[in-house]
Design a binder for these strands. Structure first.
Ligand code: SF4
Ligand code: SF4
Lengths: 151, 151
DNA sequence: TTTAAATAGGACTAAATTAGTCTTACTTTG
DNA sequence: CAAAGTAAGACTAATTTAGTCCTATTTAAA
């Protein structure tokens, strides 16, 4: 269970966009964040379709963060589709099926899904960026305050 | 973010093994749970290496559930390796790096990781199987009590 | 009014991961 | 010793993810 590059890039792009003032072009953003340009473009387009960023075409155009209330969950959903950790044996709604073990497993995974959603919905990009100063301060402190085990 | 078949199968196998009395052979278990036999064997071997199941060779041998205190988290870790949702740009511990957006993103993902671990560690296979009767009863009730949106 | 800087979108390819299979060897009980 | 089992590793197939490329369209500024 690891996060996709798409989601990772998207998250970073969103965070970065949210603290910019004017529109930022995909190219510029790609450089700032070290993300392959064409790939980033695709990501931004997905984010636009779900209203998380806005775009303006033409010279001096680019992408703007549109919705500071958007949560990390919203972004992940936009990029990787609905997060589904469980399903039924048949694949389609042929329930109830005859596999009790399957059913209990699904029950667990569903609870997990709910927890994940809860956690990620509570974190808005706006809030993340408010933490910026605090975080930067921490970074300037000694090693101890850094994120632990960042590989 | 979806769960792998390996993990899914493993979970189901564990739940099923835990309620059996004697050792169950891979073949038998594969039939019971509708899992490809050779693949299941691999899964069980991983689970053995982490002490979740035990095996006895030879005729009348098979796999036994070894540790009722094992949690869903333990099983997932055994099968898919450590669940890592975040990392540093360089990949190795060349920190601190120069990408504040990256850092905040990691911070979020790390919190998520913690939530997931917390949720899944709290669920032991023993506990899951205690719920069996309750759950089966629910299944026998009308549709309303089934897991919602099991596709 | 041309041109350069941008987004829009779709088709395509490459890389990586996941899922599954096959083969061979060893172990145990009847 | 034969049948039923696990052990381990190499291999292949299928799917997903990551990334590229190409062409069209829009827009502001020169
Ligand atoms: S019995 Fe459980 S696992 Fe099977 S279809 Fe119904 S809800 Fe899903
Ligand atoms: S600054 Fe943040 S993201 Fe960068 S290496 Fe350090 S902890 Fe990781």
């Amino acid at each position: 269970m690891k996060i996709s590059k798409r989601a990772y890039y998207g998250l970073r792009a969103a965070v970065s966009l949210a603290e910019a003032d004017g529109p930022v072009s995909a190219r510029e953003l790609a450089e700032r964040e070290h993300i392959p340009e064409d790939f980033l473009e695709k990501i931004l387009q997905k984010l636009r379709k779900t209203g998380i960023v806005e775009s303006t075409k033409g010279v001096e155009g680019g992408y703007t963060f549109a919705n500071k209330a958007a949560s990390v969950w919203d972004i992940l959903k936009s990029l990787d589709g609905p997060v589904r950790t469980f399903s039924s044996p048949g694949g389609k709604g042929t329930l109830p099926c005859d596999f009790p073990s399957h059913c209990r497993t699904n029950d667990v995974l569903r609870r997990l899904e709910i927890e994940i959603e809860k956690t990620l919905s509570g974190m808005t990009i706006g809030h993340l960026n408010e933490q910026l100063t605090t975080h930067n301060k921490q970074r300037e402190d000694k090693d101890e305050n850094r994120i632990k085990s960042c590989e």
